[in-house]
């Protein structure tokens, strides 16, 4: 049996699943790792919400320019063929359905693809939504990248989200350290497991799972 996936290995798998020529937005945090694993002949164009297509790698040394940052406000670079545009157009790109795939982190994903990733609902928490709702609603497909279990062992794939929602029925795939799930109209299918047999996975996830197709 294979081992649980590291974040980098998971990022590599997600990158390989993104079709050539796609326009992609990577959420801040873990999903950013995916950009390290695109092959040059994949011709993926990265969109960043703060007004750019053709985002390049993180800037280092002399490349750092305070006018050129990504959604996480980290200095980045531009690739040949990049373009800049204002926020109205940038979110029109999302809302208008022009992005093929967005990879986002999550607190919870429901069996029907509802996403919760912006607010824990704790009374002391200061909520911050950023572009998450626009991406969840606008991209043609939403891939979630997350650890399957919380630090206390609860599954983050749930029958219904208990945290406040980001979007309804928007998630198409869930990539985790333990398994990859596809959210289908027929239910949640496990594509592959890592470091855990299907039966054990099912015993720890309170969502009926369809076994991997061989």
């Amino acid at each position: 049996m294979s081992e649980r996936l590291t974040r980098d290995r998971l990022a590599e798998i997600i990158a390989a699943d993104i079709p050539s020529g796609s326009f992609v937005n990577l959420g801040i945090g873990q999903p950013t790792l995916v950009s390290n694993y695109f092959s040059s002949d994949q011709k993926v164009t990265l969109h960043t919400e703060n007004g750019m297509l053709g985002m390049g790698p993180v800037a280092v040394g002399d490349e750092i320019d305070e006018d050129l940052i990504n959604a996480g406000k980290i200095p980045i670079t531009e690739l040949p063929g990049a373009s800049y545009f204002h926020h109205g157009d940038s979110f029109g790109i999302m809302r208008g359905g022009h992005l093929d795939i967005c990879v986002l982190g999550a607190f919870q994903v429901s069996a029907t693809g509802d996403l919760a990733n912006w607010h824990t609902g704790d009374p002391g928490a200061i909520p911050a939504v950023g572009g998450a709702m626009d991406l969840a609603t606008g991209a043609k497909e939403i891939f979630v990248m997350m650890n399957l279990f919380t630090k206390t062992g609860e599954s983050k794939l749930v029958p219904a989200c208990t945290y406040p929602l980001t979007g309804i029925g928007c998630v198409t795939r869930v990539y985790t350290d333990v398994a990859i799930f596809e959210i289908l109209s027929a239910g949640v299918r496990v594509r592959e497991t890592y470091g855990m047999e299907f039966t054990e996975l099912q015993s720890r996830v309170d969502v009926p799972l369809l076994p991997p197709e061989n």
């Binding site: 204002h86 926020h87 109205g88 979110f91 809302r95 911050a128 939504v129 950023g130 572009g131 626009d134």
Partner: peptide, 9 residues
């Protein structure tokens, strides 16, 4: 608090 695209639009 306003989603970023709604803020822009």
């Amino acid at each position: 608090l306003v989603p970023q695209g709604n803020l822009a639009e």
